[in-house]
Amino acid sequence: MFRYILRRIAYAIPIALSVSVVCFLLVHIAPGDPIDSIIPPDTPREVVEQVRKDYGLDKPLPVQYAVWLSRVVQGDLGRSIATRRLVAGDLILAARKTFVLAITAALLGFAVGILLGSTAAFYKGTWIDKACVAFAVAGVSIPHYWLGMVMVIFFSVLMNVFPAMGAGPGDWVWDREHLQYLVLPAITLACIPAGLLTRTVRGIVSEILSQDFVTTLRGKGLRNRTLALHIVKNGAPTILAVMGLQLGYLMGGSILVETIFSWPGTGSMLNAAIFRRDIPVIQGATLVLAMFFVMLNLIVDIMQTMIDPRIVRK
């Protein structure tokens, strides 16, 4: 088991490095001289040349990558062109807010998805099943930036029960005042994982229910409670993997919802950076979010191996 974990971590390292290469290259796929992408246009000539030297931009690409990577490892993601502030500092603050939003939306979406998905599987073929499936398709088909707008129209403009924008004053705290800011964006963001989980859980549970061993279990006269336990343990590894992926997608994909609700997270930061063509911020945010995703995948994989006896541990 321990050796498997080590091997899995070893496998994640080249992936993480490749991800950093892609992020590094973002500066270079931007049109024009890369130097223009990392410093403001009105910088004096001497400073430009100094930066070019510091970043090794006069050297071949692999060397540049090495210089860049050594900076990144030390926590230096460069400076924003627009604000001239360090990217890393702003990013940490923003990532915290995004995490609050993503984890809330994820838990909400998972709860709804698991509930509806397993209900649909148990009542397969009935109208209950059809309703759940319809919800699932709607959940994955709805443009959530539009849903966000509709929510704002209903709950902020027409009914005035929840605030339409922001994350409340100051730092995030889990209190009533801040939570009301979370309601609308979290529900909006939750609709994708809810739809997707409904679909996945329905598929997995109905697949399990169709297997022979369920007949055996029923043949043993087990109570429904015990039967449910068997289904949960059989389905958990796959569902866990899907949930892990979804949480990662929410962290990295909250840009549109954050834009709609002006939620001050990484998404809003990215949006502002795109608008100003602030490449260091785009690069830094992408790198941090992708690394989070790599880590998350690693953790989910290890957990999956730990709870599923069918996976042979070598």
Partner: peptide
């Protein structure tokens, strides 16, 4: 392929698009 799978899809699209303009 694994490398590109290591990015959340929306993020990847936004980042590349954002960098390209």
């Amino acid at each position: 392929t694994d490398v590109f799978y290591a990015f959340p899809s929306v993020l990847l699209a936004v980042a590349i698009s954002g960098a390209l303009g």
